[in-house]
């Protein structure tokens, strides 16, 4: 791997949990963009595929103090000690130094699922069945994203095909830098409440870098030291505490 270059960018997300109403639009847009097949006949919420999963967290109080928050969780694109990269036995996972995106290359994947056990965010999904689309829906597949076969792991890659298209577009105009407007993941686009900001965390002028430095911003399981590039924001204390692993929380957990 060539590390002579200074990373061009470190793409990340900031998700404002106070704006998220759990509608699932991001997950649907993601599935359409990335050719995630419809659920197999016998699939459950434990075996289904989704690159973006929305968890429901409750504060555990009873009415009228009960509160709910939704956590949309995709691959957190860890930057340091990336749990999944180091464990893959055959280099099917790596970090793109140009974008900081953690990749998952299905044709190289053996399907051993070691990366799934390694991921603390449960953001990796296994193709338990052959992907099947309803008749004619295959024509609606996104040609820029390869479909995955049975027996391999897949996950969010920040709509990397959109980055590739943006690079090609910039190059056609003789430019090396992409226009940030050209690279926006599908989930960000689809969110009706504009809860998700996306961009280069290393660019101090970007919206995402400004938001990630906000006082109410936090990352999930930050103490594990994996340096995720997905940030969350909330003004509510109990929601922020949900991001920690620490035991000192009072709520009863459940999920959606």
């Amino acid at each position: 791997m060539n590390t002579a270059h200074k990373p061009k960018a470190r793409y990340g997300m900031v998700i404002d949990l106070d704006r998220c109403n759990g509608c699932g639009g991001c997950a649907a847009a993601c599935a359409v963009e990335n050719n995630v097949p419809p659920a197999a006949p016998k699939a459950s919420d434990r075996t289904g595929l989704t690159w973006m999963r929305i968890y429901r967290a409750e504060n555990g109080r009873s009415f009228p103090e009960n509160r709910t928050a939704f956590f949309p969780i995709s691959c957190q694109h860890c930057g340091a000690h990336t749990p999944c990269v180091s464990v893959c036995p055959q280099n099917a996972v790596d970090i793109n130094p140009e974008t900081g995106v953690v990749s998952q290359i299905p044709p190289r994947c053996l399907g051993c699922r070691y990366c799934m056990t390694a991921c603390p965010f449960h953001a990796r999904y296994f193709n338990w069945s052959d992907p099947e689309w309803p008749r004619d829906m295959e024509n609606a597949l996104n040609p820029d994203v390869s479909v995955r076969m049975r027996g391999v792991v897949e996950k969010c890659n920040f709509c990397h095909s959109r980055w590739q298209a943006a690079v090609a577009k910039a190059a056609a105009n003789g430019k090396r830098e992409i226009d940030p407007a050209d690279y926006v993941p599908a989930c960000v686009e689809a969110c009706p409440t504009e809860a998700i900001a996306f961009g280069n965390l290393d660019d101090p002028r970007s919206e995402v870098s400004r938001q990630s430095r906000a006082p109410n911003a936090f990352r999930l399981l930050a103490k594990l030291g994996t340096d995720p590039k997905v940030y969350y924001r909330s003004d509510r204390d109990w929601v922020r505490r949900m991001g920690d692993t620490d035991v000192a929380y009072e709520s009863e957990a459940s999920r959606g």
């Binding site: 791997m1 060539n2 002579a4 270059h5 099917a92 790596d94 990749s103 390869s146 990397h160 590739q164």
Partner: peptide
Amino acid sequence: CHHERGVEESCLTCHK
């Protein structure tokens, strides 16, 4: 060629 020219060559550079 990427290597010789010092261009990034991680998986996602070329794979989709």
